[in-house]
Design a protein around this nucleic acid. Structure first.
Lengths: 236, 236
DNA sequence: AAGTTAAAATTGGTAGTACCAATTTTGCGA
DNA sequence: TCGCAAAATTGGTACTACCAATTTTAACTT
């Protein structure tokens, strides 16, 4: 135990070690990490410090801890993204409007990318969803709407955009699921929304980027409108 | 120490406690958290478990730990976002192309929002940057380019979009700063990029959304082109 | 009385030990 | 060879002790 690497906190060395091993190719998704007691010995720091780092990596989604089995490199960042956004929201750093603005741009980009990548099977899947959406009980709306948007996102082929959109969807579920329900089932917005969804589908079928642009904006214009008119009586 | 709340891991209770206190209004940005030994007593768990949670929250950016002083609620998520993206990149879950696609959509949305929000002062700032960019040493390009994009992002007023764009910029610095330099200073792309930047500024001055759309796409078309032609000899 | 400074208390950072709990591995017995 | 129980492995939690940085206290000086 010599230099201690210049005042750097112990637990950071664990994270650096993991990243280094990944870069070197000694660790990949699915790999088992050295046992905590071994890491402790390898790095010359206490198991406490190792665990603080391991816990952080676990929370981030880099690894997955399984008592009795070990720590495994995974790479599931969904929970991390949701939790981060959730915290930003809790601390009043972001609000509904900003979330909607972000969604608008990402949904548009996802749709544009999907035009080039979507499969016939996925188009058929979307067609069914749109058809169902036209006349459906109000409780089923939400799941179907989420499925529809997710299918488009997935067809974009961009995992980064997919992840962010998924996290935003979860965030909405967590904080304003009732508002989402209100928007989806409200009589005056239901048809316009269906039309927007229908146009999104149509843009995919005909590879019409202009229509895609219009459809997504139509969608979020109505969402923003309902958002604004319902934002008052939202419980905080 | 009675129920132990159904198999839930100890450290999660700390995070729940913090979130609860925030919701109740007992904690806000700037607040000092109870000392770790006190949290340990309050929640009936060991200080180890408290620290694992505190360390995680610290890494997330929710709090900031200061030895000797205490743990303070902050809310600086930049580092968290960068680190998460960095890990996704390391684990090959995202690549340059996806990052560029995300940037394209966010930069466009930022520019469109900035059209409505930008101040005269910020426009003047951008004008100077664009003017300087026209004839400048190649080393100065990068900082000026970053400043220009950041000014637009900031003018969007959307902290979420700003945060993500900033994180993406940091990510690029971390992994392909040399490629960024190559793109910015390459003779055949330099002028087109300047033109794109100039058009972005012009769209802000005249509130021309159509031009904004064209300018951003022009910008990322050339970036993607250079990216594709340089992707081969990138060290991995 | 006010300001300065050094001691004391506070608080996060690290280390080590012990034991519990879930899982995996070992190896014995049918 | 198969099945199952014991043993070993490994993460989860607790407690104690001490270090290191900061803050607070209080005594001292002017």
């Amino acid at each position: 135990m010599e230099e201690k690497e210049l005042h750097k906190k112990s637990y950071t060395r664990v994270i650096e070690y993991i990243k280094e091993q990944i870069r070197k190719g000694n660790l990949a998704v699915g790999s088992k990490l050295p046992a905590e007691r071994d890491l402790s010995a390898i790095l010359g720091i206490s198991r406490n410090s190792v665990r603080e780092a391991i816990r952080t990596l676990d929370f981030m989604g880099v690894i997955s801890s399984q008592q009795g089995a070990g720590n495994y490199l995974t790479g599931n960042f969904e929970y991390n993204l949701v939790e981060t956004l959730s915290m930003m929201f809790l601390l009043d750093q972001i609000d509904y409007k900003q979330i909607s603005q972000l969604r608008r741009s990402l949904e548009l980009q996802a749709l544009l990318l999907a035009i080039d990548n979507i499969s016939e099977h996925e188009i058929a899947e979307l067609s069914d969803s749109v058809a169902e959406l036209e006349h459906l009980t109000e409780t089923g709306n939400i799941l179907l709407d989420k499925k529809l948007h997710f299918t488009i996102a997935r067809a974009s082929g961009n995992t980064l955009i997919i992840s962010i959109l998924q996290a935003l969807s979860d965030l909405i579920d967590q904080f304003i699921s009732d508002l989402r329900r209100e928007i989806l089932s409200s009589p005056d917005s239901k048809y316009i929304l269906w039309e927007a969804h229908s146009n999104m589908l149509q843009s995919l079928k005909t590879r019409d980027r202009e229509l895609a642009y219009k459809a997504v904006n139509m969608h979020f214009d109505i969402v923003d409108e309902k958002l604004a008119s319902n934002l008052d009586w939202i419980r905080k």
